[in-house]
Write a protein that binds this DNA or RNA. Structure first.
Length: 755
DNA sequence: AGCACGCCGACT
DNA sequence: GTCGGCGTGCTC
């Protein structure tokens, strides 16, 4: 026994690897031992027939794997943890909460460059200085070498050294510098980029604006708890100056020597917003958005950990940016759907941010004019502090909102006669009009008048959208495209015509109807190209009478001071959504779009076309505003035990073979059901199962989609049930594993929509 | 997810 | 004869 005991290893390394398998893998320590190994370093390990780079999670004294099966770590890539302790801890929680592989979670959270095993780059810059700082004059420079003498004088005035770019801008060329170096007069050194510790601490470029009493109160409330964790729901109507509140909170954070992380929706970071941050702050800012390449992303990450930036502004994925000195987190437009990732790791950046704030014991501000029902509920139950900004800055007045009955009305390109009249009125006063429709293209359907045939996508359960610019049929769900047929695909008669209206058709109609008023269309098609959107916006800002037609894009964050009339053409689609969040979204959309009207000195008017002007919930929104509306919806949700009064988990399955998905979920449902019964987790107050149901669009991109919804009034049993279900899919009966391997399945915790 | 292994169809 | 199709199994 003694002999064998001696050869037993005393330590094992738990490694997270980039594989979808939801577990960590144990390895034997490298020959060099474990002395310098810390969680968060990268290790190269053999994995089956290949080599992978993983992250060391823990060093343990035990393993469940037979010694004979254990392999040895091949290479240690880092001396210092490349993933800071708090981020590692965060990722462990995220992987656990979303039931995802830790290795792949770390992959989502860190820049690709790190995962490839690239060494950590020291961020340095080149500094030139005099070799003999005490010399009164250069000893080796000829008297006629004027440039070199000038350079020497310059360096003499800056004995600490000057950076190469700076020298260039002062007119010193590389040639001059290398001449000085050759003569031993100057030398260049590499220094690490300065951190904010060593930087001269002027924080502001320009003075902050004066806050109105309401803003000042909000800032003061938040600063009072600035030293500890607290979630603030900052509900501020459009134009109430949320951004200025953010800026002043950030200013105080920077003054305290800490960093601020600011999350913004995917298309929320306009050049204007960024400009405003850069104008205000003298402190370096890192911007993290989808347009960055790997290397830029990596540099931004590195600057944040090294405390070389004071502010990090980014979209969803920026929530994983490590901070050297966390001080404040801001989530702007917290209700925005883009905070929820809709594939692979289906995380909510807002929820992860709240976890981070708790972890770092710092305040977090969720800002929105139209907060999500979840957040409103959390505010009502005092888990969040609810703060309000209800005054519009400047002279701007709140717009009037009217529900326009279009029942029985003849619509032209979706516009009722009454709306057309209104448009004329506003244009005649020299003002601008904004028309909102959530449908791009010319028309959503091509219909045969003879037989009723409709042009459908061959790969999706969806109609093809007609586009005119350029003319083609397009599937908005899978990108399938074809030319516009002349004859019906069924009866071959030439009586095809477009039904319904999208942005292009409305644009056409308005052009003919309101000539010569310019029509500016803003949707994904019209804004292709980097500067196109900016060009369109600058046209609008000229302030001449014009009609803007656009999709969602128009609802977000832009100022249009000359717009006095805003129309929503198809509010009804939100009233009858299959998704229980349809009404919430409609309310947010209406409020956000209405916020575009009358932000200048002129009063705004909002027209909502609907077939249901009597709808109590719409009326509540219009007459009493978003917050009362939200409370009405919350009461409704409570009755139906829907979120936030229950928690949801969704099993999604995609399969090529229509019935396989349903079969898998049926079996899974049966197993979960037994499990719940056995553990007394069922019953009306326990975990309930709904499905399998086909997804609202059953076929998409040639994949059939099925789902099984699991719901529970408390989180714990929901997660227990999901953990159990995943065990069945990954390691249950042979038949189950086999079926599960044939399809693509995934889990969505806190799903945002059932699409 | 990868990647190897393995067992059946049309090809130089 | 063999190249390669993707079903099946495994990864510490």
């Amino acid at each position: 026994m003694g002999n064998y005991a001696k050869s037993e290893p005393t330590h094992y390394l738990q490694v997270a690897l980039p594989t979808p398998l939801r577990r960590v893998f144990d390895y034997l320590p490298p020959k060099s031992g474990i002395d310098f190994l810390r969680p968060g370093i990268r290790l190269k390990v053999p994995f089956g027939p290949r080599k992978l780079i993983g992250i060391l999670i823990a060093i343990t004294a035990k393993t469940d794997i037979p010694l004979a099966n254990l392999k040895r770590v091949e290479q240690v890539l880092d001396e210092q943890p490349i993933i800071p302790k708090d981020i590692l801890e965060l990722c462990r929680w995220v992987a656990h909460y979303y039931h995802y592989s830790l290795g792949e979670t770390l992959g989502t959270a860190t820049p690709t460059a790190l995962r490839q095993g690239r060494p950590v780059a020291q961020q340095t810059r080149k500094l030139w200085r005099l070799t003999y700082p005490n010399a009164e004059a250069p000893s080796h420079i000829a008297r006629n070498a004027k440039l070199q003498l000038a350079a020497w004088q310059l360096l003499k005035q800056h004995l600490k050294g000057l950076h190469e770019p700076m020298l260039k801008s002062l007119g010193v060329s590389n040639q001059t510098l290398s001449a000085l170096e050759k003569k031993g007069e100057a030398e260049c050194i590499y220094e690490n980029l300065p951190t904010l510790h060593t930087m001269p601490q002027s924080i502001l470029h320009e003075a902050p604006l004066t806050l109105n009493p309401e803003q000042a109160h909000v800032v003061q409330q938040i600063l009072q708890t600035a030293q500890q964790f607290q979630v603030f729901l900052l509900q501020g109507i459009t134009g109430s100056g949320k951004t200025e509140v953010y800026l002043q909170l950030i200013e105080q954070t920077l003054k305290a020597g800490r960093q601020a992380l600011v999350l913004i929706p995917e298309i929320g970071l306009t050049p204007q917003t960024l400009h405003r941050f850069e104008q205000r702050f003298a402190v370096p800012i890192a911007v993290i958005h989808s347009g960055l390449n790997d290397n830029e992303r990596y540099l931004a990450w590195q600057k944040a950990v090294d405390y070389r930036v004071g502010i990090i502004i980014g979209t969803r994925s920026a929530v994983f940016t490590p901070l050297a000195k966390p001080g404040l987190i801001i989530i702007d437009e917290e209700h925005d759907a883009s905070y929820k990732q809709q594939d692979s790791l289906r995380y909510s950046a807002r929820d992860i941010a709240i976890y981070r704030a708790r972890q770092a014991n710092i305040p977090i501000v969720l800002g929105s004019a139209t907060p999500s029902l979840e957040s409103v509920h959390n505010a009502q139950t005092h888990r969040y502090r609810h703060l309000h900004l209800s005054q519009r800055a400047g002279q701007a007045k709140p717009p009037s909102i009217e529900l326009l009955n279009i029942r029985g009305e003849t619509l032209q390109a979706g516009l009722s006669p009454a709306l057309q009249q209104k448009i004329t009125q506003h244009l005649e006063k020299g003002q601008q009009v904004l028309i909102f429709i959530n449908r791009r293209g010319y028309a959503p359907t091509l219909l045969c008048h003879e037989c009723g045939w409709v042009a459908d996508c061959p790969d999706c359960d969806a109609h093809l959208t007609i586009h005119r610019q350029p003319p083609h049929l397009h599937c908005h769900h899978c990108d399938y495209q074809q030319s516009i047929p002349v004859r019906c695909g069924h009866c071959n008669t030439a009586s095809l015509f477009p039904v319904g209206a999208g942005t292009e058709r409305i644009e056409d109609f308005l052009l003919s109807q309101f000539d010569p008023i310019p029509i500016i269309r803003i949707d994904r098609d019209s804004t292709r190209g980097k500067t196109r959107l900016q060009e369109l916006f600058s046209d609008i800002h000229q302030g001449k009478p014009a009609i803007l037609v656009g999709t969602q894009m128009l609802a977000k964050g832009h100022h249009f001071p000359k717009v006095t009339l805003v129309a929503i053409l198809d509010a009804d689609s939100g009233l009858f959504s299959t998704d229980f969040r349809g009404l919430e979204r409609l309310g947010q959309l209406v409020t956000q779009v209405a916020g575009r009207a009358g932000r200048g000195k002129l009063a705004g008017e909002v027209i909502i076309q609907t077939h249901h002007p009597e709808s109590p919930v719409l009326n509540r929104l219009v007459t009493e505003g978003y917050e009362v509306f939200a409370k009405t919806l919350l009461a409704e949700r409570e009755k139906l035990s829907l979120p936030p009064y229950s928690y949801l988990g969704l099993f999604r399955v995609e399969c090529k073979n229509q019935e396989e998905g349903e079969r898998l979920l049926l079996q899974l449902r049966e197993l979960i059901s037994q499990f719940l019964q056995y553990n007394n987790l069922n019953g009306p107050l326990g975990v309930t199962l709904l499905g399998p149901l086909p997804a609202p669009m059953e076929k998409r991109q040639s994949w059939y989609r099925w789902q099984l919804l699991i719901s529970s009034p408390s989180r714990q049993p929901l997660h227990t049930a999901i953990t159990f279900a995943i065990h069945q899919l990954e390691g249950g009966t042979q038949a189950m594993i086999k079926l599960a391997r044939k399809v693509r399945w995934s889990v969505d915790i806190d799903p945002q929509d059932m699409m």
